[in-house]
Design a protein around this nucleic acid. Structure first.
Lengths: 224, 224, 224, 224
DNA sequence: TATGAATGAGGCTTCATTCAT
DNA sequence: AATGAATGAAGCCTCATTCAT
């Protein structure tokens, strides 16, 4: 019989790419779809365009994903997964609370900047009132870590007296997200209306520091 | 004879609304378009749908606006104008800096909440990289007041020593905007992932206070 | 009472242009229509465009001409009339037959070149199988002079023995027309396929002479 | 099992024509388009009408040709190709120059009469200033044979002394074309203005002879 | 007479999706 | 599994023409 994983088919000729790696086809499609949806929105993206940028054909998209909406949903999920996995590298346990929080904020700020496609997809999903995320099974789990990470730092800070008590870790996470997200999501209109100064290299470095300052000041026990 | 401006035609029947008021037709279309684009995006919105919700016909949309993109652009402009005009009611000159800033933040927070259509349209425009705002003449002007209002408060606060020097009014405005905007723009996905707690009535009241706290803490001269 | 032709209305102010000169409005429209139809064809021409290039409004076009097709028909008639009137200046009676015929050919050749709008309108009318010319009353008359002019020259030539007998003046006119017309009508495609050489200044001068030669040789009694 | 190339599908019913022959669909569309454009012009032709006369759907027209203008261009090219291919049957090498030239003229005259669709399409293309022919790659080549055929005959005639020297083959071709083309292109208006006499069967036979005479007389070395 | 506003019908084109091989 | 061909529904837009003032 066949040797299973070999790159040669029974007839000795190389197997077509997809016979060797059907999962590769899927993720190829998904990567292209992510980029297209992110750039054009759900209704703005074109199946034809996605197919053309893929190594496979339009037929395969339907074969693997059923229809445009499900493809969008899978792309959205993939985007979340990719971004969350990128966050795992972050190790803060050994740092004192203030430093840990500052690093978390700065990391989030940078991470969002590095992933504009993800940001845009989340914007798009919000335009759709979260309808596709709502019906996605996989995702709810992925996000508890975000809260628990904040929670761990915050608790420690409250214990040491550096942070004021009474705040919700969700609210802290919300602030970190809001500032980091808005920086990417609204860059275009904000620049147009108020100038590019915040989006030069220097501007971003300063903003990054100020965002971290702001979150720290928000959390700290120092008096108003 | 006829009474000239009457809402009745010579034959005694009511004139069709538009015959009395061509500008009304325009703004009727614009209002519907704003809602539709805001709900569905540029490519997601349907001219047919817009026309159906209008007191006039599809044909008139083209008569007044030329094509879909220009209609979108005018709707965007109208949204900005409407929101900016809503801001004018705010009088802060007589208040001490801290109070003024707090009121400004709270007002902005509320104002954004009251205008989700505007928020969504701005998101959509950012998805389009600001292409339509960029080519709009009218808008650039409207926004300097936002900065100068912040600037006035901030300067006074620095003079009194309540605020720390060295901050840019644009950066302060940016923070106010980011937090107020994100609250509306990302409500759907944030709720799905982290629960509704921030978006109940109580949650919003708390968040509003915390957003104002955060901005004040960011600006205040109190030590870190 | 009023003074009839005065350029002042009863109230002493200048009359609007059209009150002084309603016929001017008509011919203004007609001139613009002629150019537009000639450039774009019957279905290609746009009433809006015609109206815009006119000193009056679209409404007036319908007032004076009824609809697009009748406007086209009137433009066609006007074109014929204009061209035929331009031919009247030609006086050939005193010339010997050969010279008269040569001058007639050269004149026709030049005349067609000077009136490309007319040529194009005739092409367009032929595309429409002559449907609009067929239903035009005014035109049939205008064209007998063309034949009789040829006939006069030809008869004289036959009498003197310079021209061979047995030809129909219509056939002679046909040849003159064919060569003069084609020179203008097919310039674009002929140049593209066979080069510009016939349509330079020199090329046209040579062609003009050759066209006259050709007609003369066709008519002459000299042996084959 | 199945017989592969059979015109019957597995279920025994006849396959729809196009399933057997995708190239047939293309040429079917092209043939219909040629007729419609030729009859109505570029803007006058209706895609709906073309589709209705086709064995396929409107959608396929866009699938194969992209848009109306490109369909027109392909139809124009097809018309040229078809006509040029019809000319290849002509063999004149063995004839003495005068006979060869006469046969060439008569053939061209007849060929044009047989292809009024082509003539009309060329008229239409001239209305469009040759814009579509200009941007067509395929065509320029096809036409050199026309000139070289004339050239071959003319050279031989000059050598034998039957033809006068100094003429350009392009100019000779031009005359042949002009007379043959005009006969078809302007038939409608010419008949209306000057009567049908040239377009009866007898009239055309006579005209054909006279056109050939005219070209021969133009070329011959016999004195003026 | 003149004008801006209005309109219905129909034109061209695009899109997601499916079928036959 | 993969492909090119095919499709119906619907989208955007234009045009000649008319109406109310």
């Amino acid at each position: 019989m066949t040797t299973g994983d070999s790159a040669l088919a029974d007839n000795g000729r190389p197997k077509p790419r997809w016979k060797q790696d059907p999962e590769g086809v899927r993720s190829d499609i998904l990567a292209v779809a992510l980029a297209e949806f992110s750039n054009n929105g759900l209704s703005g993206a074109r199946i034809d365009e996605i197919a053309a940028k893929t190594r496979t054909s339009k037929r395969m998209i339907y074969y693997y994903f059923g229809d445009k909406q499900r493809l969008y949903q899978k792309a959205l999920e993939a985007a979340y997964r990719k971004v969350r996995s990128g966050e795992e590298e972050l190790a803060l346990d050994h740092l004192p609370p203030r430093d840990a929080l500052r690093r978390l904020v700065e990391f989030t700020f940078d991470h969002h900047r590095r992933n504009p496609d993800f940001i845009r997809l989340v914007m798009i999903e919000n335009i759709h009132h979260g309808d596709y995320l709502r019906h996605s099974d996989l995702i709810r789990n992925l996000n508890e870590t975000a809260i628990s990470r904040v929670d761990a730092i915050y608790r420690k800070g409250v214990e040491t007296g550096e942070f004021r008590p009474g705040l919700s870790p969700v609210a802290i996470h919300w602030q970190i997200s809001a500032l980091s997200f808005f920086n990417v999501s609204n860059r275009a209109t904000f620049s147009l209306l108020f100038g590019e100064e915040l989006h030069t290299e220097d501007g971003q470095a300063l903003l990054r520091r100020q965002v971290a300052d702001s979150v720290l000041r928000f959390v700290q026990s120092a008096p108003l």
